[in-house]
């Protein structure tokens, strides 16, 4: 019996809960399991088998879980095998996720996270801690949403040396740029449209100034290319200066513009780039895409949805399967 604790009950947490309610699908994947705790920032439900349907109903109705143990208390007092750390990202401090993950790893529980913050702030420390404790820290959901990236490189093309990774890692920026390309409207107008659609974070600069992309790039560099870099090492340029005419002139020459995150031996950079129209990275809408160059496999290209409740949950579930696949 796998005992699962869920920390964070926002879009991703709820998405994961919905998939875990699908017993038929999950039993076939990982065998027997039960959720022993669900917590958000305000409250929690702890039981030998939490009724997820009920938890979702309460969250829906009250906007929060009922008063109960906080996450720290749960980690200290409740037994579980794996924690799903799905709390909101803070890329400056990594908290509260960083403390949660450290405590879980120290007590010998596996951790699966969708939270970029802790990995951006302390990847090396956390991966060493996991190794010392003999447990796993998996984080497929932190980069590229539903797109397979981390396990694809770590497992599916294991043995390769990764020469470079170039990707579109922020769906909001890609939406704005592909709309500017099509409509030739100003950046401000398309941003307003994106806000109406609800695909821009409350703090828009996090997306449009390239910080979110840079955070993901740091995770890729550290976890897949054996680097030891932090956010301040990334050369970052956002998309706010791009004019509608830029697309007109670029298209005449057979290019469009996309925000590209790039890592290679001597490059660690997020910046708008001219992309040939026939290049696979020329994707539209909120899609994410990633082009990997490896020494043995050559070029590998992945495209998919970089955000969304079920999409991100899909990556969390794939990490569960990685740990417990039967």
């Amino acid at each position: 019996m796998i005992r699962i604790a869920i920390f964070g009950f926002g879009a991703v947490g709820k998405g994961v809960a919905k998939i875990l309610m699908d017993r038929e699908r999950m039993n076939r994947l990982i065998g027997n399991y039960s959720v022993v705790a669900v917590a958000d920032s305000k409250g929690s439900i702890v039981s030998s088998s939490v009724n997820l349907k009920e938890a979702l109903k309460i969250k829906e109705k009250n906007g929060r879980l009922p008063d109960g143990m906080n996450v720290i208390e749960i980690i200290e007092e409740v037994d579980f095998d794996v924690a799903l750390e799905l709390t909101p990202t803070n890329i400056d401090t990594g908290e509260p996720g960083l403390t949660h993950i450290k405590k879980c790893l120290k007590k010998g529980a596996n951790v699966i996270t969708s939270n970029k913050g802790p990995l951006v702030v302390a990847y090396k420390e956390l991966s060493k801690l996991a190794e010392r404790s003999g447990v796993k820290l998996l984080f497929e959901a932190t980069v590229g949403g539903a797109m397979p990236v981390i396990k694809l490189i770590k497992r599916d093309i294991a043995g390769n040396r990764i020469r470079s990774i170039k990707g579109i890692l922020n769906g909001t920026c890609n939406y704005i740029l592909s709309r500017m390309e099509k409509e030739r409207l100003s950046y401000r107008m398309i941003l307003a449209e994106a806000k109406e659609l609800g695909i821009v974070e409350a703090n828009e600069s996090y997306d449009v100034e390239g910080i979110d992309s840079a955070a993901k790039l740091v995770i890729l560099a550290n976890s897949l290319m054996d680097m030891d870099v932090s956010l301040k090492d990334v050369e970052i340029e956002g998309i706010t200066e791009i004019t509608p005419e830029a697309f007109e002139i670029a298209l005449e020459k057979g290019y469009t513009i996309r925000l590209i995150s790039e890592v290679s031996e001597d490059v660690l950079r997020v910046s708008p780039r001219l992309i040939p129209l026939n290049n696979p990275l020329c994707v539209h809408g909120t899609l994410n895409a990633i082009l990997i160059k490896a020494d043995l496999a050559g070029e590998i290209f992945v495209i998919g949805r970089g955000a969304g409740s079920l999409e991100t949950a899909s990556a969390v579930i794939s990490d569960l399967a990685e740990l417990y696949s039967c």
């Binding site: 340029e237 590209i260 910046s271 708008p272 001219l274 992309i275 290049n279």
Partner: peptide
């Protein structure tokens, strides 16, 4: 002045 570079130096 913002410089937007090509994805690859030579396509």
């Amino acid at each position: 002045i913002t410089v937007i570079e090509p994805l690859e130096l030579e396509e």
